[in-house]
Design a protein around this nucleic acid. Structure first.
Lengths: 218, 218
DNA sequence: GTCTATACTACGATAGAC
DNA sequence: GTCTATCGTAGTATAGAC
């Protein structure tokens, strides 16, 4: 079971990438046990034994799929985190605007149709976290959460410790639920699928709520 | 495939109930495809073919499990909805307090360890809603959402239509994320499991946020 | 109604050709 | 590296005893 060297170049081996893309969808839709390596290989246009060769087996593929998702999310969110951080540090942006910028970016991602591909994967891991969750948390959730906590602490110096973290969780929770409770959201808004108007509306509601929460005792 | 009559008495046939309890856990933990009727029957202490007899097969059992979950949640939440509604209508309770009472009840449920049993089932259905989601929505989500929307409309008469519904969704989303993003929440709070202190903290954060959002331009 | 026994299918893993 | 072929296991459904 020879393992290829990790590939740090921009261009991932097409076969690996095709398998990973297919795996994310299958694991997301059907869960770990429900997904079949046969179906993943078929969707990727390769033989099932490629999975054994490339990832060592189903479990290895699952972990690699978590990294694959993490990389995609990080590619979207890390530039925004860095922009927000440096703008605040240079004094160009008030901390509350940075919070709104980050949460807005997250909301944009959650409301985008493309996040459906990996949403199931993550909500499953949230219910029964394993090694895949560790990787996702370290790669994307932790950097975002810690920056949010720091920024919120500047906006609301009356908060600290666990109380500050609980407020941060509530703010982030509003955004998470745009994906995690997608079906209920659509019914509450009485629509079949999200259009531009609803995306705008949800963005505005989020902005208004965050300002209301953080500007208390302005 | 004779179907027994629906049972409206308080006492469900113990075999049916044991199967349903086991099914909720298995479907929740492993998903529809991942759960096995063999394992469910074993956990329930009966033969696999009892499932065929009682529910017509795996799919019938899945739908019955959704109803089972809905009934449990409804048993907790409907009394609170009714109490809130009548207290507001009699003028004994300001609408905003009713909103806090309902969201507090929801949060209590989401933070209770017992909701882990069915949380996985619901978040899966949220990602790929089917007939099971229809039943859950009609039985518990819709009555709660519609009452919330009505009450919030009274607190904030400047809101209406989809804008009102978007705000309602954001408020409920904070509560949903206590379960749907449980693993991330624990890490953000830097704890292994929820204790009484953290429950209290999250309750307080929720209350403070809801008041801030709804009392804007008080 | 609940059991045992069994038919049939699909799973993951792996060996070996190329 | 990727393929085909095959092994052993576990899945759902169902027939039939009691």
């Amino acid at each position: 079971m020879k393992k290829p060297e990790p590939n740090f170049t921009a261009e991932i081996d097409p076969v690996r990438k095709r398998i990973l893309d297919a795996a994310v969808v299958q694991f997301s839709d059907r869960g770990y046990e429900g997904a079949s390596t046969r179906a993943i290989a078929r969707d990727a246009g390769t033989a099932m034994s490629s999975i054994t060769y490339q990832f060592g087996g189903k479990h290895g593929l699952y972990l690699a799929a978590a990294d694959h998702i993490g990389g995609q999310i990080a590619g979207f969110i890390h530039p925004r985190l860095n922009a927000a951080r440096s703008a605040v540090e240079s004094g160009a942006l008030p901390p509350i605007e940075a919070v709104l910028m980050i949460l807005g970016g997250m909301a944009e991602m959650m409301l985008d149709d493309r996040s459906q591909k990996w949403a199931g994967f993550i909500v499953r891991e949230q219910q029964e976290p394993g090694e895949a969750f560790d990787r996702l948390y370290g790669q994307v959730m932790e950097p975002m959460a810690e920056l949010m906590i720091e920024l919120i602490g500047r906006v609301r110096p009356d908060l600290s410790g666990k109380r500050l973290r609980a407020i941060a969780m509530s703010l982030v929770g509003q955004v998470i639920s745009l994906r995690a409770a997608r079906a209920a959201m659509l019914r509450i808004l009485d629509i079949k699928k999200l259009g531009a108007a609803e995306r705008e509306l949800l963005h505005e509601a989020l902005q208004a709520n965050v300002r209301a929460i953080l500007e208390v005792k302005g």
